[in-house]
Design a protein around this nucleic acid. Sequence first.
RNA 1: GGGCAAGUGGUGGAAUGGCAUACACGAAGGACUUAAAAUCCUUUGGCUGUAAGGUCGUGAGGGUUCGACUCCCUCCUUGCCCACCA
Length: 811
Amino acid sequence: MQYDFSQIEAKWQKFWQKNKSFRAAIDKTRKKFYCLEMFPYPSGRIHMGHVRNYTIGDVIARYKWMQGFNVLHPMGFDAFGQPAENAAIKNNSDPKEWTYKCIDWMKAQLKKMGFSYDWEREVVTCGPAYYRFNQWIFLKMLERGLAYKKASTVNWCPSCETTLANEEVIDGACWRCKNAVAQKDLEQWYLKITAYQERLLEDLKQLAHWPEQVIAMQENWIGKSSGCEIYFKLRDSGEIIPVFTTRADTIFGVTYIVLAPEHTIISKISAEGGKGHISNLKEVEQYIEAAKKKTKLERIERDKTGIQLKGITAINLVNNEEIPVFIADYVLMEYGTGAIMAVPTHDQRDFLFAKEHNLPMRIVIQAPGSRLQAPSEMKEAYEGDGVQVNSGEFDGLPNQEAKIKIAQWIEDKGMGKISTQWRLKDWLISRQRYWGTPIPVIYCPKCGIVGVPYEDLPVELPEKVKITGVGGSPLSKVKEFVVVKCPKCSGRALRETDTMATFIDSSWYFLRYCSPDFDKAPFDKDEAAYWMKVDQYIGGIEHAVLHLLYSRFFTKFFKDLGMLDFSAEGGDEPFDKLLTQGMVLKDGEVMSKSRGNIVDPDEIINKYGADTLRLFILFAAPPEAELEWNDTAIDGSFKFLMRIFRLLEKAADKTPSAELLRRLHSTIKKVTEDMEGGFKFNTAISAIMELVNEIYKSDSVNKEILKTLTILISPFVPHMAEEMWQALGAKESILKVRWPEFKPEFLKLDKVTLVVQINGKVREKIEAEVDIDKESLKELVLASNTVKKWIENKPVKNFVIVPNKLVNIVV
RNA sequence: GGGCAAGUGGUGGAAUGGCAUACACGAAGGACUUAAAAUCCUUUGGCUGUAAGGUCGUGAGGGUUCGACUCCCUCCUUGCCCACCA
């Protein structure tokens, strides 16, 4: 029998499509399972990363299906975004046409992989039916003050000509084009994700089935830091400058304070009529100018530059000391209060700065076991724990204890307050781009900012817009779009011409799949109540912060709107289990166009078929580990499939041996355990390989054994399984079959082989009855000639028995 | 600087306190063949030995244990995330 994979795969793909085999519908009599993979950006071609991601998801979905779950397994396209615009500029094409063409290509490729998607639920984010609800959500947030516009210094990518969210700036560069990000003062729209920071942090605890790494990354990103705001007073003007510190215990060691160049107090005290006088104002202004011009990368150089505000003196309220005030660009306006207290003896950055500028130092924490050292002898700051010195009434306390006491004391005396700082910033969502969701806002000279009324949604994206990539938002040049009547006063008004960040699209698409055609709200409450949470989510680690954080934020917002309720499942998190699959490498490097080491999935499918590709990718590494592509190893996967297929020729009705039955049931057990215990597909497949090897060794192939084998391989290589299932006489699709259960009675043995160790080294193997009693076993072991030889006449000190496994004799 | 992973044959990997290297790739030898492909069989960690066997061996060093790839401590290397975050 010929393994004609292309004919077989086409046949079954057609069968599944015609029979709508993967259609999902609410069925309250069955337990649901929502299996989701991160949807792709329609770049035009799927790559190995997609193949891996979606193969993993497909195996899980099919396995759950066979276990009797009502499975929801959807797919869609994250279709807004810049590549479509770049293609438009390059090829003078239309972003919409380009995008839909890409979707068609990719869909065809996904179908060729045999993935079990319910294509009737396909979600494409660039259609008005979808993005109108981006606008709907935006308006709901606007009503609640969670969407707002503010002027601020923002990340600006000069090459993409658009603003970027903090999350989109990687190492000071644009995540998309890798060019250095600049700073720009702009008025932009923000979503108030910080209103949810406490919950976003706290609820990470609910995510027991997420990789620890992802939890850690989100914790890092949210960046809660507990400390204390301490007030410093300017001597002449009386202005208060709050600083933030996590080290209240070092307050008596402060010898100067440092402000960020953008700090507002500077213009205040230097302004005419302001009290206080900066004698070197000109140099200070030059320094500030230079600092503002620096890119983010330039500002994080290790050199500690700075300039003193001469003539200005601050007072440390805890001891009334007068101290100098500096400006330095290593102090960031975005974090804390934009000002710091400097303790050179106990903070390395302050130490370097103080050395540079020849500033005084004072030790206030004494390291355990060390004698008080003169600051001049210090080679670096001491940042560890110790005992308070030079700290007034707090002397002698361990610094960790003093930290809490001093903070409380400062708050009680009104010299500051206990406070918490967060690294997380509000989410900047305005983009000066065309291919995205129009922000549904109108600016009226009389009424101000007016949200587009819900009945006027969607604000449709105009078509046939000229995209040049330069000169600001393309929409601002479309007069019919921009000039509108104010919905409130009907006067002449102007539309917002920025579009939304595309991460908004992916922040709720998993909810849209529950009711993709619903037109009253983003999703139908009842449908979502049945299908959500996503039971298993699968995707790349690169979304650990961006997409996964935003989706959590949106889900919590929907809960607050009363649209979602997971209280039965505990908490309000969208994704119950998360699997982050490893990257696909070639020659030890990530596959990428620029490296030129891409293996095209299409070529592999044409040469070997989708089943071989699926099998290889599942077998070569555990799903969360990196996978090294190997051109010759894929040949091995192909040969293995042919080897299974050839078993059909040998199928007979002979009684199988007890040994083979035992092997069959231990394989069922192993494969099931591997699926349940973290989707260890690679070892599940090797167990199946061992079974196949065993079948080949036996004289004849029993049909029933072959049937069970076929079921076991079906989640991995579904086309071949269907073909074999049919060849073995089945009338129905293998999808209707239940996953087998192993029978413990087949696994029972009369005798086992025990390992005999002498002093922990394996010296002998003996056969013994199962569950043999200790005394008989001891007798049996000591009777062995090899054991006798090793023991000779040394006394046996210990005789360790691990039942049915091992004996260790200590002499 | 902080946090998190990981380090096992020629290669991908298996074993998570009990036979280290399952399963596979590759390599070598053999059978079949006019030949090749396919298929099947054998061998395949190092050292030592004709062999039986012995001995070493999971990044390095130490510890716990009858027994450690696995647990603990120190260090090295690689990867990822965050970071002048006060």
